[in-house]
Simulated assay, not measured.
Amino acid sequence: MLSRMIRRCHQIVAGALLLASLAEVPDSAAAPASFAGAMAQAASPAAIADYRRKLKAYQEARAAFEQEAGAYWNAIADKRRIRNAKRRDRQPVSLDDYVLVHPPLYDGPQRPINPEPEEERSPRQRKSIPVVADFLRAAAEQFQFTPQRPRTETDFKRAYASVARAYGLTKEQAVRVYSFETGGNGNHDMQSGLSTSRPGSRAISTAIGYNQLLTTNSVELLAEQGDDLLRALGEKAARSSGPQRAAAERKIAVVKRMVAYARSVPDTWSAHQKLADTPKGWAIHALVLDIDVGPLLQTHKLLTSIIFARNKGYARPLTAAELEMMNLTGDGTGFDMVTMPPVMRERVPTANFFQRRGYERNPVAIRHNTVAKLLAVTNARMDSNSAKPGARELAAAF
């Protein structure tokens, strides 16, 4: 899904990443172990010489590419620093403040297969990504809390629409972002990469829900918007009585403890990210599934981007596609694209808004390689997915 691919890039943008060394470049054409072993036993001097010749050619080509690519991505970083400094000083940003050529892509020879015996390496252990069951278990173990799940998906959509409307989100913004993030038919507990229609599918991130919040999003939102969440929950509790009132007050007590935990570190993405990767952080993420708290978290995720743009002096309402850019790439990076005049959008490559590794792993950003093209494909996907049953049901809930 388009949103999932872009989302993976957003996770990479959040921190500085290093490329793997040449020795670690994966060999996508590696032969099965038994076949490779047989080849190794029969390797002739001519085969070994040919391999070494090809390896030298590969290493030289990669080294030349690395030099070119390194210079390009250093220029991207330099230009980004210049733009940030100009914005801090309220100076206008021009085309000269962007790299206007597209990044180099490696098209040289691939690493050859070694016909000689090599020391066996232990396969890399893939880091396990927690799923909904893990978040629910952590909530029960860490905070003795079970989210209040909706009786039907329609109930959750109605709750979300009610909260989103109350906080000023438009139907177009909420429905089109939902359409893009979930493919137009996602449930409140949909997790990125998992699909009931694809047996054996795996989670590719911790992103859950209508706006695909990550564990770090949930921790950060609780830290920054905890007072408003508790106020909203308190107002709802005040309108209830009996067992419902008691249950609401127990939920408020749990959320207060979660807010305190989320605020136990500095208010930075990196600090929240560390908390999010703990059992208590997983427990906080389970709030996305709660019919009272989940809609508030989903709404605040989009609202923070709107407020960010407004505080920067951007008075025009954000389109759904513009809001999605801020939602996916981060407010600062997304705002850079949103405030760009249309004539500049046609010329500025998308590479200006990515770290190198994120860009090279993102076929969408490579294929739709200008800001105008990226916004256009986002709008097109929103148009298509808005006609699906889940999106139509959310629209009706407004």
Rank of each mutant, 00 (worst) to 15 (best):
Q11M: 07
Q11T: 08
L19I: 04
V25I: 13
A29R: 09
A40P: 08
A49E: 14
A49F: 14
R62C: 10
E66D: 15
G70A: 08
G70S: 07
N74D: 13
I82N: 01
R87E: 05
Y98F: 15
V99Y: 08
V101A: 13
P112L: 04
R126I: 14
S128L: 10
A140K: 13
Q142E: 15
Q142F: 04
F145S: 03
T154E: 13
T170D: 11
Q173H: 04
R176W: 08
V177M: 05
S179K: 01
G184F: 00
G186F: 07
H188M: 11
G193V: 06
S197K: 14
S197M: 14
S201L: 04
T206V: 06
T206S: 14
Y210I: 15
Q212P: 04
T215W: 01
V219P: 02
D228P: 02
P243V: 00
R245I: 00
M258D: 13
D267V: 14
T278F: 10
P279K: 02
I284M: 15
P295L: 12
L297M: 15
T304A: 08
A309P: 02
P317D: 00
L318I: 09
A320F: 09
A321H: 01
M326Q: 07
G332H: 08
T333I: 15
P342H: 06
N352C: 04
N352K: 01
A365R: 04
V377L: 12
P389H: 12
E393V: 01
A395M: 04
